[in-house]
Computed example of a mutant assay.
Amino acid sequence: MTQNLLDLAGIDRPMKTTLRDQIYTRLREAIMAGRFLPGQHLGIIALAEALNVSAMPVREALRQLVAEGALEMLPNRMVKVPVMTHERFRQILGIRLLLEGHATELATPHFTDAQCDRLQELSDGMAAALAENDAETYFALNQDFHFTIYKASNSDVLMQHIRMLWLKMGPFIRLSYNQSGVKATEVNHGEAIAALRAHDPVAAANAIRMDLMEAAEVIQEVNPAAFTDVEPTAELHVLDEE
């Protein structure tokens, strides 16, 4: 966990952006990119020290992430990356297939050659990161690959919901980092790029859906410890003000 925390350092504040918002954004992006794993505990003090900030803005950012379901509150100024049941995982996957497939279909008709070239650069970068066994760069580029497509849908509503789903699924997506998972991703991304160049919305959406489904299959088969048989019960804990 230490490396994950240290990599979050370097918070800066553009004008009119609060420190709390900067911390929230950085932590949200880290969760979406799979920088933290299911079941991992995070302490307010450790996060604040890694970010070189006081505990208060970290606490406020964590409260929002808890409210959004990205983290679970624990006692003693700790939060946890949630685990989930297989059934909940499948439900979220089903919604992702609908929304991310639809976003891809909307993006395809006007997707440009320059955007396809950008996807190829990201795919090549993923291959280079894989060769260096750099999982964090690999999944950051994977996220960029998907969102480059989804943003081209020009649908703010779709993007809002897709981001919320990635916030819940990011820690699990990281668990697809093995030989079968990365090979399937390489093939599916290549097919998506080809379909986008051909302006074939059905083929492009199918490639993205296949990417999601095959990653989900690897995650569930190879990482049973990330799941629970019982839906967690909601317990009220408060991040104290000390």
Rank of each mutant, 00 (worst) to 15 (best):
T2I: 11
Q3M: 05
L6N: 10
L6E: 04
A9E: 09
R13N: 07
P14G: 10
K16R: 15
T18Y: 00
T18D: 00
D21S: 15
Q22A: 15
Y24R: 11
T25Q: 14
R26L: 06
R28Y: 04
E29I: 12
E29H: 13
E29L: 14
A30D: 02
A30G: 06
L37F: 09
L42C: 07
L42P: 01
I44D: 04
I44M: 09
I45L: 13
L47P: 02
S54Q: 14
P57W: 00
E60F: 08
A61W: 03
R63G: 07
R63T: 08
V66P: 03
A67V: 01
E68R: 12
E68K: 05
E72C: 04
P75L: 05
R77Y: 02
K80H: 04
K80Y: 00
K80Q: 15
V81L: 05
P82C: 08
T85Q: 12
H86V: 14
F89S: 11
F89N: 09
I92T: 12
L97D: 06
L99A: 13
E100W: 10
G101S: 08
A103T: 02
T104C: 08
A107I: 10
H110C: 04
H110A: 13
F111A: 07
T112N: 05
A114R: 07
A114M: 02
Q115V: 01
D117V: 10
L122N: 04
M126P: 03
A129Q: 07
A129P: 04
A131F: 02
A131R: 06
N133F: 11
N133Q: 11
D134G: 07
T137L: 07
Y138W: 14
F139C: 09
A140R: 15
L141G: 08
D144S: 13
F145W: 02
H146D: 07
F147Y: 07
T148L: 03
T148V: 02
T148I: 03
S153K: 04
S155L: 13
D156I: 10
L158T: 10
M159W: 10
Q160V: 03
Q160L: 13
I162S: 01
L165V: 04
W166N: 14
K168F: 03
P171D: 13
F172W: 01
I173C: 05
R174I: 01
L175S: 14
L175G: 12
Y177N: 13
N178D: 15
N178M: 02
K183E: 14
A184S: 14
T185S: 15
T185D: 15
T185R: 15
E186Y: 06
E186D: 13
N188E: 03
N188H: 10
H189I: 01
H189S: 07
G190Y: 00
E191M: 05
A192W: 00
I193A: 00
A195K: 00
D200V: 09
V202T: 15
V202Y: 03
V202E: 13
A205R: 00
A207H: 00
R209M: 11
R209Y: 01
M210W: 02
M210N: 15
D211E: 12
E214Y: 08
E217C: 04
E217H: 08
E217G: 10
E217P: 00
E217V: 04
I219W: 02
V222N: 05
N223T: 15
P224D: 11
P224I: 09
A226F: 03
T228P: 09
E235D: 11
E235R: 08
L236T: 09
L236V: 15
L236I: 14
H237E: 05
E241Q: 12
E241F: 14
E242G: 03
E242Q: 11
